[in-house]
Design a binder for these strands. Structure first.
Lengths: 224, 224
DNA sequence: CGCCAACTCGTACGCTGTACTACGCACGTA
DNA sequence: TACGTGCGTAGTACAGCGTACGAGTTGGCG
């Protein structure tokens, strides 16, 4: 079999860093980040394990590239909207994307260098804040605050054993509540009951904090 | 060598789940979570690798226990203070602890069940909020918001390549600024310059968002 | 034609988590 | 005192990991 034929057989056309990273993301979505090994990834691409190393220097670089691809999926803030709508939209998009790729949030911890997509986002958000009238240092504060909230929320969300209100209802009654003795955890019981009655939706929960934060930032603008 | 003598030689006295997990935390702090293997941990304890499996069912359980030990280090909210001071104090403590054990934040992502220390914290914080006059569902919202901010901030902090203002100054001039072309990232350049001039301290940065969030929650209490 | 750069991959090494097994000591009982 | 019994310990083994090394094949260029 010729190298060209092998390349053709590689699932589609030929390998490339893009294809390698994209398939790695798909694999991590499907099997979790622990299920992502160079051999399995190569298998999914119809290639030998060592072939991957012509497109990524090592697994670390692969993980970096995966994280950056995820950042590319997040909507940039729109330039025509007012700052609150623009950043609100972006934050919602970020939460959705991070919920789609739960492994990404855990991967960020170990990576120290921001990828290009990450930089572009920071630039765009900072621009949005500055144009809205936030002083330089205040814009930095706002950036930290907003990103902290988004990432932290996504982190908590991935460590929930359920994703929707219905799943929560089933799980709460079956597993969660019984392991919380009323006398030791009265308040947790109270809120679990209340959540059960009210229905629980992560997306709504996210909006509460997001809007509260955006509203609290509003008066810190300097122009108008 | 007798089993008892072996136990004595195991660094100190005898193995126990506590000692195993504590040493694992120390090892992870020193070498990072990737440097933590059952063999290395056993070596640090003066034991054979397989001996550890009498105290933890598998590595997953070890990691769970490590995360919970970290939560134990975080100060519980004081019951005698007003709600803002109590939760402010707790949040500050949490950030410090998570900065001390950077691997913990990345570990939380994959763990679905909250450990006992985690539950105790949730209970105490919820109690604090309810006693301060937040309605049940509002207390849940506040809980999510505060935890999201703390975890998200810690997550961002661990992925910074520096820890103090001085390190930031050195690093910014040497590595960060040169790779940000002025024409592509004008706003990032602006804020990097401003941060450089103003000095940068993660602890202060954390307080800004924390106080903003606490202040925004204040009017949502129902009694007074 | 010869040559080279790009690309692919088989093999091998040292590491990982852990299943299985066997061994030795302390202890309750006779 | 003698003897099971059971618990704590660890040696060995296995499948799988990331990846260094080097050999193989190819298409394109002088």
């Amino acid at each position: 079999m010729s190298a060209r034929e092998q390349r053709e057989a590689a699932s589609d056309a030929g390998l490339s860093k893009q294809r390698v990273v994209a398939e790695a993301v798909r694999l991590a979505d499907r099997e979790g980040v622990d299920g992502l090994s160079m051999r399995r990834l190569a298998g999914a691409l119809g290639a030998g394990a060592m072939s991957l190393y012509h497109y990524v220097a090592n697994k670390e670089e692969l993980l970096d590239a995966m994280v950056d691809i995820v950042f590319e999926e997040i909507d940039l803030p729109r330039k025509d909207a007012d700052w609150q709508s623009a950043l609100r939209r972006r934050a919602i998009s970020a939460r959705q994307v991070l919920a789609r790729h739960p492994w990404a949030i855990g991967l960020m911890e170990s990576r120290t260098s921001a990828g290009p997509a990450n930089l572009r986002h920071h630039e765009a958000v900072t621009a949005c804040l500055r144009k809205a009238g936030f002083p330089v240092l205040m814009a930095t504060h706002a950036n930290w605050l907003l990103d902290s909230y988004v990432y932290g929320f996504a982190l908590q969300e991935t460590s929930l054993p359920f994703g929707t209100a219905d799943e929560f209802a089933n799980m709460a009654e079956a597993d969660y509540l019984p392991q919380l003795p009323h006398d030791e955890f009265p308040y947790l019981n109270e809120s679990a009951q209340a959540l059960l009655a009210a229905g629980y939706d992560p997306a709504e929960e996210f909006l509460f904090g997001l809007d509260l934060v955006l509203g609290a930032l509003e008066p810190l603008r300097v122009s108008a």
